[in-house]
């Protein structure tokens, strides 16, 4: 799936994540900020990467600002942002 334009999904409310997607030239790139980066940073990154893989995305720059979202929220937000970016 090819990213054509910038798009976003989610919010900065508690328990949500704000995901921005941009076209990227050299593969996928993820920039993550989270209020629980020490505890769950690695896991959040994994969920984002898995979601990108499932959707066959190979040229996305993802900027995510997390406020304690659960895995399925993260997945849903990333997927929505990607579909909006197509």
């Amino acid at each position: 799936m090819k990213i054509n334009n910038p798009a976003k999904a989610g919010s900065l409310e508690s328990n949500d994540i704000f995901v921005m997607v941009f076209p990227n030239e050299n593969g996928n790139e993820i920039e993550l900020e989270s209020i629980v980066i020490k505890q769950f940073g690695k896991r959040i990154r994994e969920v984002i990467e898995e979601t990108l893989k499932e959707l066959n995305v190979e040229n996305a720059k993802i900027i995510a600002k997390d406020r304690g979202a659960l895995d399925y929220t993260i997945k849903a937000r990333v997927e929505t942002a990607i579909r909006r970016a197509m």
Binding site: P6, K8, S11, L12, E13, F18, M20, F22
Partner: peptide, 21 residues
């Protein structure tokens, strides 16, 4: 009460739609 996050989310969405990232 979380009003700040609603305001910032909404203003950020608006800016995003105007191409301000």
């Amino acid at each position: 009460e979380g009003l700040a996050s609603s305001l910032i989310t909404k203003i950020q969405n608006r800016m995003f739609d105007k191409g301000i990232y």
